[in-house]
Each structure stands twice: as C-alpha cells, then as structure tokens.
Write a protein that binds this DNA or RNA. Structure first.
Lengths: 136, 136
DNA sequence: CTATGTGATAGAAATAATTACTAATTACAT
DNA sequence: ATGTAATTAGTAATTATTTCTATCACATAG
C-alpha cells in the first residue's frame, strides 16, 4: 500500500551493474556502452544512460563529475577521492580521509547550509608520465 | 626576441574581465553574455566563451567545474573553495584551507603524479533554505 | 492459461552547452 | 600611416545527454 521501490532487475540493468562493478576504470556512459555491446549487441545507448542514472539515484553506484566534458561512473560507493589525469582524462582512486570534519569547518565560513564535501585531485597518470619522459 | 604572450586587450576582452571581477556570483558563460549585452549589445556568445577560455588559460581568471551542466567562472584567483546549492545551482565562496598538505597525503596513495587538489561543498543557499521553510 | 497494467527497451529525434568556421574588422608594432 | 596577425560577430557544427514513441517483458488478477 505504500510507495514501493519499483526497480525491476532487467537483463540490461543487471549486465550494466555487473560490468561497472568489475572494472576499476571509472568509465563514461559511452565507455560502458562500448564495453556492453560486446556481450549484448542490441543494447541502446539511451538504456545505458537511463540505468546509470537510476542506479546512481538509488545509491547503488556513484556518478562522478571530476571535470572534463563527460560524467563518469563508479561501482565502488565507499567514501574515497579521485585523481584525474590532465592529459588523458583517466581517473584513479585515492584513499585520503581528511583527519577532521571539513563540513564543520566550512559551515563556519558561510550562510549556505553545508551537506557534504568532495575532494578531488589533478595529476598525471603513470602512462602519461611515461609518455612525457619519452618525448623529453 | 622570446616567445611573447600575444594577448591583445580588445574592448570585448576588457569588458568581460571587468564585469567578471565586479560580480561575486560565479556566472556561467551565458550569464556573462546576458550581463554584457546590456553594455555591449552586439557582443557575440562565441566571443564570451573564447575570452573566458583564454583568460582562464592565462591564469587571469578561474574556470570552475563544480557540478551541474555548465562551467562557471570566477574573477578571484586566490585559493579558496566553493559551495554549490543543490536546488538552484548558485555558487558561493568558502575559505577553508586544509591544515595539512593534502597533495602530499594523496601522493602516498597513488602512482599518479599529484599536482593539486580541489575541495568543493554541496549545500543549500540562504534563499533556497528560506523557500524550503516556507513550503514545509 | 490469458488478459491487463506498468515499467523498461531500442532506436531515433530533440535539446543544451560548447566549439569551430568564415569573412570582415581591429589592435598594435614598425 | 600601414601591414599583418589576432579578434570579432554571426552562424553552423559538434558533443554529451535527455526525451519521445512504439513495442516488449513481467507480475498479478481473473
């Protein structure tokens, strides 16, 4: 009788979730689409977008906005930060948990009501470091 | 004799820079366009985009990517963080300087070469707080 | 088992933000 | 004053994402 969580676990949704959890690369929606069509050639890009959106709204996965033009997705929902390679856009995980409450600090400085923070790094991934060295 | 910084100070560029430095609202490119056409009706949206890009690449202004679909710009290039209102998208400044070197901490956890960090908050701006209260 | 309602899908079209193109104009060094 | 490369306005193109629509899948009621 109450508002239920009507989430059908369709084949597409299941494969999307499985695939995202399998990789550690923080793929874009289109990356996912390219990966998925190998196992499910008729899957639609719209379906990939819609399901990544639904899954992240349900808190089952994470939608990332780490700069660059495309959103990325992460099957790991534990609290962690990210680094983005300024050259190739590749995104890696970083476990830096600030040792004090950033939200509390921030709240003292503003009349916004602070909910949460997001800490992100920029840098150069191992592959692009290597390329730079080769060119130099 | 050396590679010079060929930055012509055109009327448009100057007005764009002046206007951005005048406001504290972290406008989008289109916000800027709307503001600017009042003083310079024939300015083109493309010109606004290009100049904001050039100015931020030169380090004269800052390009922000605080989530949402549009990039925002900030005439204040001193180191500070931002809050984004989850309801209306408005962006505010926050002066929280972490009390230890986040980059150094992060570098221990990854094989990326860390350059810098970005700390951002999400919350509710004063205006939307008020609206929420009124509706409740 | 068959009907029915509701959510989900594929594929295509639409939208939003940004970037690229082009011919005309302008800033600035000489 | 003049040559020239940078910049402009206006428009077209591109990119990422969302919406639309007809069809399909699945749970439940009869």
């Amino acid at each position: 009788m109450e508002a239920k969580n009507k989430l059908r676990m369709t084949k597409q949704r299941q494969v999307i979730l499985e695939e995202l959890r399998k990789v550690k690369t923080h793929p874009t929606a289109d990356d996912m689409y390219q990966m998925l069509r190998k196992k499910m050639p008729k899957i639609s890009l719209g379906t990939v977008y819609r399901n990544l959106e639904i899954l992240s709204e349900s808190g089952i996965i994470q939608k990332l906005d780490v700069g660059g033009t495309q959103k990325r997705f992460d099957g790991d929902i534990t609290i962690h930060s990210h680094v983005r390679c300024v050259d190739c856009g590749r995104v890696g995980d970083i476990d830096v948990t600030p040792k004090y409450n950033l939200e509390e600090e921030a709240q003292k400085m503003t009349d916004f009501m602070i909910f949460r923070h997001r800490l992100e790094f920029t840098g150069l991934c191992p592959i692009c470091q290597h390329k730079k060295k080769a060119t130099a």
